[in-house]
């Protein structure tokens, strides 16, 4: 458990918290002005208030575990992974395969346990081993019909919501975890806003109209520029004194956040189009399901983790195997 004031010792943590609070207050003020002056339709204003209300609940649920420390962060990532699995399995029909759903759920718990234990070798070993278990789990049922479909669905669920997302939790083992994780969460949020805004302002040509009819090439490029700039700028203050304090690497890091974030979004759009559904769930008013909100993080987590791990070594110098060790 962390001493409370240490949560705020990094200036970037304080800066991101202040900026987030400022943006929320500004948004409330703007929507308030719209409401008082009667601009926009009542339905539009109601939608804006609904979205703001959801953010006002979601942001503390994201930020507080990060501030509380690695155990809380990993617990929150585990719950997020399980919530994503639930939405995905109900949307794709995988939920009817109780055994495979259980194997994937245990796989998610195991990947996050390895993160909690800070045991990188187990963390990495679990990916192929869990996929192996998924591949053989239903063979004893002697039911080859549908084998490829259910195994493929379960494998992709595990790789996205277990192995992939657990990288976020593993990052919590690093001394820079708080500013880094807050930066990633802020950046993927900004990535969506930047794509929407620049798309509205400059967008003419559709990006992938069959996959996501509202996205434009201008929006994608606008998001790439804005997010890369923000991540590189803030990252320069996060990674002071490390090999990541290098503009080429920082720009690469920022571009990776934006590109992986946008592909995460498009990946979920592809899933929803294939299933002919609008949202993955209804749990977050104004947003849809948990996956509709957190899709961008699914690919950002492993992509950024491995860049940072290669350059600075995530969690290096920190105690390892804190649970299973001697």
């Amino acid at each position: 458990m962390t001493v409370p004031w240490r949560a705020f010792e990094h200036p970037v943590t304080v800066g991101i918290l202040a900026a987030t609070l400022g943006v929320l207050l500004l948004a409330a003020a703007v929507i308030g002005v719209l409401s008082v002056t009667g601009r926009g339709t009542p339905a539009f204003r109601r939608e804006l208030w609904l979205r703001l209300g959801s953010w006002a609940v979601l942001l503390p649920m994201i930020i507080i575990p990060i501030l509380l420390g690695r155990e809380w962060t990993i617990a929150a990532v585990t719950l997020l992974g399980l919530a994503c699995l639930r939405e995905y399995d109900r949307a794709t029909g995988l939920f009817r395969e109780y055994l495979l759903t259980a194997v994937v759920a245990i796989g998610i718990l195991a990947a996050n346990f390895a993160a909690l234990d800070h045991w990188y070798h187990l963390f990495v070993a679990l990916w192929p081993l869990t996929v192996g278990v998924i591949s053989v789990a239903t063979i004893p049922q002697d039911k080859p019909a549908g084998y490829i479909q259910r195994t493929a669905l379960a494998t992709s669920a595990y790789m996205l919501f277990g192995a992939g997302l657990a990288h976020l939790g593993f990052m919590a083992n690093d001394p820079l975890a708080r500013p880094l994780l807050l930066l990633l969460v802020l950046a993927v949020g900004l990535n969506d806003v930047a794509a929407f805004t620049t798309g509205k302002l400059f967008g003419k040509r559709k990006l992938l109209p069959a996959t996501s009819p509202n996205k434009t090439i201008a929006g994608a490029l606008g998001a790439l520029i804005c997010t890369t700039a923000l991540v590189a700028f803030v990252g320069n203050r996060v990674f002071v004194g490390t090999p990541m304090e290098n503009w080429f690497l920082l720009i690469l890091f920022g571009a990776l956040v934006s590109i992986a974030g946008q592909f995460g979004d498009l990946m979920l759009s592809s899933i929803k189009r294939d299933l002919a559904i609008k949202d993955m769930g209804t749990i977050i008013p104004g947003h849809g399901g948990v996956l509709d909100r957190f899709n961008s993080l699914l690919l950002v987590a492993p992509a950024t983790f491995h860049l940072l791990h290669y350059v600075i070594g995530i969690g290096d110098g920190q105690p390892v195997r804190v649970i299973t060790g001697p």
Binding site: R90, T92, D274, T282
Partner: peptide, 11 residues
């Protein structure tokens, strides 16, 4: 492939 979402999806 027969992708059959839950009958109660979206409720």
């Amino acid at each position: 492939w027969q992708l059959k979402p839950a009958r109660d999806l979206g409720l």
